[in-house]
Design a protein around this nucleic acid. Sequence first.
DNA 1: TTCACAGCGTTATATTTTTCACAATTTAAA
DNA 2: TTTAAATTGTGAAAAATATAACGCTGTGAA
Lengths: 210, 210
Amino acid sequence: MNKISDKKIERIITYRRVLLRLDKQLGKTHVFSHQLASSSGASSAQVRRDLMEIGYTGSPAHGYEIRGLLDSIGEFIDPDQKEGIALVGVGNLGRAIIDYFNGQSSKLEIVTVFDVNPDKIERVISGCRSYHVKDLKPVIIEKKIKTAVITVPSGSAQSVADELIEAGVKGILNYAPITLTVPHGIYVENRDMITTLEKVSYFAKNNTNK
Amino acid sequence: MNKISDKKIERIITYRRVLLRLDKQLGKTHVFSHQLASSSGASSAQVRRDLMEIGYTGSPAHGYEIRGLLDSIGEFIDPDQKEGIALVGVGNLGRAIIDYFNGQSSKLEIVTVFDVNPDKIERVISGCRSYHVKDLKPVIIEKKIKTAVITVPSGSAQSVADELIEAGVKGILNYAPITLTVPHGIYVENRDMITTLEKVSYFAKNNTNK
DNA sequence: TTCACAGCGTTATATTTTTCACAATTTAAA
DNA sequence: TTTAAATTGTGAAAAATATAACGCTGTGAA
Ligand SMILES: NC(=O)c1ccc[n+]([C@@H]2O[C@H](COP(=O)([O-])OP(=O)(O)OC[C@H]3O[C@@H](n4cnc5c(N)ncnc54)[C@H](O)[C@@H]3O)[C@@H](O)[C@H]2O)c1
Ligand SMILES: NC(=O)c1ccc[n+]([C@@H]2O[C@H](COP(=O)([O-])OP(=O)(O)OC[C@H]3O[C@@H](n4cnc5c(N)ncnc54)[C@H](O)[C@@H]3O)[C@@H](O)[C@H]2O)c1
């Protein structure tokens, strides 16, 4: 399997979200590439190209069979078993995420959270056991966690990332406004809100056709 | 001025964040492209290319003068005056964002928030006046707001977006897990956490070299 | 049964983005 | 003064990504 790009994976995951709605909420059984495209912000050629990648074929007459396509996307994207995720930093943002996320994704679940504040540890927060960050490494190793979310202040983010990586984490979703330095083979997605909003504001001014 | 890409803008904004730290916290006056690159996750060639775009030149001997570069980036990115931003949906996420954002960006400020819940309106939340969403249009028009953040449940996101756009908003940062349909000329950035975390988890498994 | 058509899969083409590579420039040391 | 070293700015090449194009297939209408 030759490597598949970031953007393509993101689109495919978006298709799944659209397909789930078409299936569960609208009761549709089939969908055409242009429909999937317009509901997910892609072009129809792009949809066909992307689905080619995962090897699912539709028919010219009916388009793609939704259930089947959902299965294929699941096989392609999802881990084999349920996968636990860790979150570090149970502040305002961290808590909002913990409350929100679980139950939203079929295979992923935030199972462990960490903080330094004594008031926030050794408790159960939205079903997740919370630990002191000094126990991060043994707990992550024991639970075989590979993906983590960082919602600590920016001054602590790099050291938290270092520990996560030492404990075997391979993917990090970072909300702190800092660029993490990580070894090769570790995937980091930065979600700095300030940068994003500055960008949106820029394009709100300097944009004509998207 | 020929149009400049999304990614490039985002990198330039990231450079600024790095430069601010170099200036304020570390007291540096100059920086080389490779230093800026490694602190911001780009390559040195990319840094030089990006800075070429904004027309700032450095010297082979000292690199780039940090203050001057900061000014140039500001001129390039920032609005001329301070710009107000609206946020719709004062829930867990919305509140976290309101508490966090103001003061972080020199020209942008969340000035108005909207909700439907009577307990959350006609109050002042972290310095922002809150209104019922039925008053969205007149308030946004009156305050000349061009950029907005959506943190309402996904079922309401499209209708909120429609109203924002009718009121003249040109850029939307959307946290609801749905692809918004908007007219040409409106810039939307989606920050769906589920998609992102599924992607990070995917690359945590299927990643070798970034 | 035949025809027109809409949409798929895929190859080819175009565009965008990144990387490479090197002359030109500046400094500091010899 | 000259030389050596480092880094810039930028055209050219390469890589990645998106769009277009089109033969093929199944469907429904005539
Ligand atoms: N609130 C937002 O909407 C928002 C948006 C974008 C980014 N961020 C970023 O997310 C991070 C958290 O924001 P917040 O508003 O939740 O802040 P917060 O202060 O409410 O929460 C931070 C939490 O991290 C904990 N913490 C501090 N150091 C730690 C460490 N070394 N290990 C483990 N836990 C530690 C603190 O005890 C606290 O509970 C910040 O970096 C912020 O810049 C926040
Ligand atoms: N919590 C998170 O970390 C997180 C992360 C990613 C995405 N999201 C998304 O962000 C959105 C908000 O999440 P949350 O956890 O804050 O939910 P929440 O239920 O706490 O908040 C939603 C808020 O929106 C208000 N609201 C509902 N309909 C509205 C309307 N038509 N106009 C104005 N306000 C309205 C509600 O009164 C409530 O205050 C959801 O779409 C969620 O999917 C949340």
